[in-house]
Nucleic acid binder design. Structure first.
Lengths: 198, 198
DNA sequence: GAAGTCATGTAAACGGTTACATGATTTT
DNA sequence: AAAATCATGTAACCGTTTACATGACTTC
């Protein structure tokens, strides 16, 4: 059992991601790249390490799966103790969301810098956000099957992943919109400044 | 001078926050609580430590200000070397935004947990988002003075802080909306489940 | 033949958080 | 008299990131 009471945050994200089945460390890295990526980022190496710790703590169990033609893998699932841990976690007050955004720092300082590379990065980010948005929207379709959203949210059995994915959609949509607007604003200011010189 | 080339992320946020004047460590903690809080979180102790490192690296200079009735303070401003550092930072590709959200983890797992505390936390988060939104909107008003937004963005001199604040507004607005919607959905499902039992 | 995927780790360095520590002044 | 604000730090711990390491099989 774990002695520590509070921090250690990745742990709960891993438990939540494992709730709907058995996955290997490698498969988890894929899940963290897509389905969970809207609320948690983790590097692959973190996941392998975390699974080892969770297994040592009895919150997940692993079983070896022998494969032909491929390396063997270990599939993990959440134990009863793991579920209790998640329940305890869910009942304690959430910490406010902590943001740290490189690109916003650059925009904040843009008046004293060359705006061109910042504009380029805003377009990059907008493209990434659009791509993620598409992935999330596909995921929503898959999750709700042939029901429309309202019906699914009222009557579906597993709405958690759907609801968290909706948050991801909102974030990506706004990110895309802000990046494009900001890039346009900075671009127009650049154009004007160029004209003023010539 | 700093030897390391890339990570060390707080540093750039501090430089960006210091661009519009001289501030003490204590004042910086206030700025990180408000104006910068839409793209970076830092604990007070981090800021004191970071200022010390930045000064040792020549990226900021501090000057002692003797005060009566209050402890003396040190005011810091960005040096030319600091500005060059920021410029170099702004020109390198931004890392994708990394998210880690406790509350979304809980929502993701909510189907197997007691939804009541999660709903409560969603309301808490919605309230916080609304409060932050108000602060940001006041900040926007202050920043653009008596110009309307469009005119200010075209002709204003310092639009960086305004643009980054717009991102904060978008985020808080969506956060509030998602939290309230999600809380309502979960609440209605709870009510139905309660009726089904009785 | 090269690139990509499946599969899992270790170790070192870096960054962030929490707890502790101090002390004067101002406001309630 | 107590609480809040101004003002700055140290030390220990925890969590995250990066670099390194390995190897078979599959697809282009």
């Amino acid at each position: 059992m774990f002695m520590s009471i509070e921090p250690m945050a990745l742990r709960h994200a891993v438990l939540a991601a494992l709730l709907d089945g058995e996955y290997s460390g490698y498969q988890l890295t894929k899940i963290f790249d897509i389905g969970v990526s809207n609320f948690w980022y983790a590097a692959p190496q973190q996941l392998y390490a975390e699974l080892t710790k969770l297994e040592a703590g009895g919150l997940v169990t692993g079983r070896e799966v022998v494969q032909r033609g491929r390396p063997n893998k270990r599939l993990f699932k959440v134990t009863d103790a793991g579920l209790r841990e998640l329940a305890a976690f869910a009942a304690t007050p959430a910490k406010p969301l902590l943001i740290r955004d490189d690109l916003a720092v650059k925009v904040h300082a843009v008046d004293l810098l060359d705006p061109a590379p910042v504009i380029e990065q805003l377009h990059d980010r907008a493209r990434e956000a659009a791509a993620k948005l598409e992935v999330f929207e596909q995921l929503l379709l898959r999750l709700r099957g042939d029901l429309d959203e309202e019906t699914f949210l009222r009557q579906g059995e597993h709405v958690g992943p759907y609801l968290s994915c909706l948050a991801g959609c909102r974030l990506e949509r706004e990110t895309r919109a802000w990046c494009l607007e900001t890039a346009r604003t900075l671009g127009e200011r650049m154009a004007r400044a160029g004209r003023d010189i010539s």
